[in-house]
């Protein structure tokens, strides 16, 4: 157990911070730890959580995805057309929405791999294109999502918020098995050292392509879940989510230089970020001062996360 905690130090710290924050939140909330409070909290967290998962796949291969928010906006707008009507139509619509997200990621990956351009620049440009497409679909916010489905996805099951169940499914059903596959290991190999990965016979181009496609896929899932929560399509949501997803993965212990961190950490980081925001709401701090406190807490959390620097024995270790 102790060994496990030591080797997953970053996730353990993030988890600890999250539990403390959540306890404070539920303690200060006027309605306490009711299902209602938990459900609203979990929904907000999972939207950013999925966006952070998307960012994680780009970051772990030493890239960055500035189009996460744009993919969410685009898939959200697609969802607002497809997720209403017959049951079969809706089922098809959900698949189509996620596929659209994955396709966006694939386009990013293809340009990065075959155009040999830095991910940060490529996704900056494609983000503009995706937002443009979203605006073509929904010049003004509107559309609808089937209410029964939205309720099923965003309320609770036997008192447990559905969003938390979905999070568990993502971790246990997807991440834990995935990490042991060749592709999962390849992501870390590529992120740690591209040259070593290449020389070990790993198809680095395929891995990078897959990583960005997965990033798009999770962006699509984030957009889909956002549609369930808001039940409308809005092309203007991109900017906030992209930057927050980067902050979330860093809070969750994922290193921007690649190869370090897990999906669980990214999720924890996103949950921390959202819990801070909800905590502010009930904290009694004057509402005008809340953005400042949010910024201060974010900066402090990031600074503490980099406390590893104090353990450097040699000045050269600092440069990594």
């Amino acid at each position: 157990m102790l060994n496990y905690m030591r080797s997953n130090r970053r996730e353990v710290i993030a988890g600890f911070v999250l539990v403390t924050l959540l306890a404070t939140y539920l303690g200060t909330h006027p309605r306490g730890a009711s299902t209602y409070v938990m459900t609203i909290w979990a929904n907000q967290c999972l939207i950013l959580g999925l966006a952070a998962c998307a960012q994680f796949f780009a970051v772990v291969v030493r890239g960055i995805d500035l189009s996460v928010g744009a993919v969410m906006a685009l898939t959200n707008c697609i969802a607002s057309y497809l997720l209403d009507g017959s049951a079969l139509g809706i089922a098809f619509g959900m698949v189509a929405v996620v596929a659209a997200g994955a396709f966006c990621g694939l386009v990013n990956g293809l340009i990065i791999v075959f155009g040999r351009i830095q991910p940060i620049v490529v996704t900056l440009a494609t983000a503009s294109i995706f937002v443009g497409l979203a605006l073509l679909l929904r010049p003004t916010p509107g559309g609808a999502v089937n209410y029964d489905l939205a309720d099923a996805m965003t309320l609770d099951l036997l008192g447990i918020p559905t969003a938390l169940i979905l999070t568990t499914i993502a971790v246990v059903g997807f991440w834990l098995p995935f990490r042991r596959t060749g592709l999962g290991l390849g992501l870390y190999a590529l992120g740690s050292s591209e040259q070593a990965a290449f020389q070990s016979g790993i198809d680095t181009r395929f891995i990078r392509l897959a990583a960005f496609t997965l990033a798009g896929l999770f962006g699509g899932l984030a957009g889909l879940f956002y549609s369930f929560v808001t039940t409308t399509g809005d092309a203007g949501i991109a900017a906030g989510f992209t930057l927050n997803s980067i902050a979330a993965v860093v809070l969750g212990g994922v290193l921007l230089r690649g190869g370090v961190g897990t999906l669980v950490g990214a999720l924890a980081g996103a949950f921390i970020l959202k819990t801070i925001a909800s905590l502010m709401f009930f904290s009694g701090i004057p509402s005008l001062a809340q953005p400042l406190f949010e910024g201060l807490i974010l900066a402090a959390a990031i600074a503490i996360g980099s406390a590893d620097i104090l353990r450097a024995r040699n000045k050269l270790e600092v440069f990594g």
Binding site: A125, T126, A127, S128, I129, V131, G132, L133, A134, L135, L136, P139
Partner: peptide
Amino acid sequence: DDAWRNIIFG
């Protein structure tokens, strides 16, 4: 319009 402007820009 705004949508096409974004797309062309990108």
